[in-house]
Nucleic acid binder design. Structure first.
Lengths: 211, 211, 211, 211
DNA sequence: AAGTAATCGAGACGGTACGTCAAGTCTTGAG
DNA sequence: CTCAAGACTTGACGTACCGTCTCGATTACTT
């Protein structure tokens, strides 16, 4: 990740333990203090590391928190529950469970907010958090096609548009439910949501081709 | 808003112009600097007001930005375009247009992120931003019932659940599209989204009553 | 003093009680807080008076404290104890007693320090505090001359020089003893001091005439 | 002074140049602004140093000014002019010359005034300003005894009392002359003063032993 | 084994913003 | 015109973090 000792280098190598300790300390600090009161000096202290060591690896608070939170969402995977609806419910519940954890809640939206004014940060978020999630949608569709629940896509442009829409609807609804409405995305809600989503997609004619 | 001189008060009354100037300066600063680089001292200077005047009215950056952003969303209203689908598309486009403005983008998610650790802040957001939006959903449903597009609700518990779900889906999807995917919620997208949502709701049996 | 309602004026007259209350509150605040932590807002509150009222009468903290402290030293008078030495000891003990009070200690040196950069302030101190003290020296000399303990002065220039010297030696020594050495100017010390002063003056030839 | 890196320390050592620059800037600010308008932020700026660096070394304005002024009085030394009277005149003139400088005038009395409510500050003043001055009195007496101008002291208790009295009389008179009377302690005045002091001491029986 | 070079901890450094406090002024309505 | 009340502008306060910089002390690779 960061700890590349670029192969043919001399000098003392970077401590691999430090990365782990720092990311872990970051999550702990997010839980206890939240994003806005988290300070890099405090994280360094918690990790038993000097501030210099931390800055040698990350350029600032935003990048650090992205990496710390990305590890949480890295646990996500698409369960095989036998049907498309069940698969979706399963992965949404997982996503909701992660988002319910204070270190995710507190950190994720903050870095997203920051990313509105920092393209490099948005790219980092996309690469390490968003794209892996979107891959789950692709994987789910592929599995449903294998099962025969969905037809193979004909128009790739159209298919991509639909995947994007699904992804925004799923992730957006769960995030809004959790953070703004501050209500749990529990089984009942996920079930309601999934039913509306799948019926909506099934009943929908593809719409006019993109202009 | 803040400038209530509660009837029988003595002393110099608070300047009503100051509130306006401060909120306006806050939005301007959000545009130019973004949330994280916005400082209350700078806002005060822009507003031509002393820092103490600002702190007398707002307890901190979060509260100030909530009020400043709330005024933006206060412009939202439900247009009468003749059909439920058209009404929804209209209001979603308005919502997307506001969210596309940098002062809203930059500020909204930041205060939502902060609100995960501050109940008073979340309540303030709910009262001044979220609830007015949810009222639009209620208004839209009432109008559709008047038109005969929707049946009158029978079970109020069920109806409330549905309104909450719709609201999280609409607001969540637009926010996610705008901030995370960083793509415009333009007419094409809104059209696709509305079609899925309405078909999903229409085709959906109410689901088991809440357990 | 300040409370002149300049005779032929219209409008509400100034409250005479306010002056008293303000000066008294100032001394109380000096006792409790000391010079540096005394604030005019606090004095006004203690005096049950608005800040405006205070500023209408005094131009600032320095002037106010000078007047408040001057009233303390206004109590000084030359006792008639039958001999020059005894008279001096008496008045020095009185001076020491006033200086030992916290409101005098804390305030006097502070305004003297300020006066090094404020001629108007120094003049105010001189007129209301220093000159009355110097008058006591003159009065003591006159009384001693009446008693025949001192000869009538011949050279007025020389006499004025001597009075100034005596005054600086007396006041300076007591102040230094009290504030810098932080030891009490008690009867023993005053007795020692007076003996040295009077013997020194008696044994001294007038010195070369002023150049 | 402050910059002890006590042998076995880690971390970046404190800049020794900073101490010098800060104290020098403090004296310059005292000259230009006087005690009451001197701000630590301004001193830091003048010294080319961050405010935090200043606060790391001194706990506040009082302590800083004591150290800045102490360096001025550190220049004092007892000249050997051949006789007790001449020695005293010499050192008193030096003392008066320092006290005439605006940085000393403005600062010294202010910290003395503050010290009436701050024991630690008084102790600091005593250790770094007062005691070195008192040592000069002791040194002068010793030299006079060597010359045979004064007898060796018999009673140490009595001798200490006399030294204290002399010190309060000398320092007090010069300070009062300079700051309160606002007249120069020039050669004429110093000559007059020294004559009275020495004659007073010579003609004086030791007085009754302390009660 | 000695030398080289990047790492490590610690903590001081110059900055920037914080949120508070007091100074002195101004604006209200009541007397 | 004064009064009490309290909002106003200004500017300093002392603190907290930022991200950088020195230190002396470890490590590893390279000769």
């Amino acid at each position: 990740m960061q700890s590349r000792t670029p192969a043919g280098r001399t000098g003392r190598p970077r401590s691999v333990a430090a990365d782990t300790a720092i990311l872990s300390a970051t999550r702990q600090a997010l839980v206890e203090l939240g994003w806005s009161k988290l300070t890099l000096g405090d994280v360094a202290t918690r990790a038993g590391v000097a501030k210099t060591t931390l800055y040698r690896r990350w350029s600032g608070k935003n990048e650090l928190v992205v990496d710390a939170v990305a590890e949480l969402f890295g646990e996500l995977e698409l369960p095989d529950r036998g049907s498309l609806a069940a698969d979706i419910e399963g992965v949404v519940l997982q996503f909701a469970a992660i988002l319910a954890r204070p270190e995710a809640k507190s950190g994720l939206m903050a870095v997203v907010a920051e990313s509105t004014r920092d393209d490099a940060l948005r790219e980092r978020i996309r690469a390490s958090i968003v794209d892996p999630q979107k891959d789950l949608v692709l994987e789910g569709r592929a599995r449903a096609q294998t099962r025969g629940e969905l037809p193979p896509e004909s128009d790739p442009r159209e298919a991509s548009r639909t995947v994007d829409l699904i992804f925004d609807m799923v992730a957006g609804a769960v995030v809004h439910r959790t953070l703004v409405s501050a209500e749990p995305a529990d089984e009942e809600w996920v079930s309601d949501f999934t039913r509306v989503l799948l019926h909506g997609l099934a009943a929908t004619p593809p719409g006019p081709p993109g202009r």
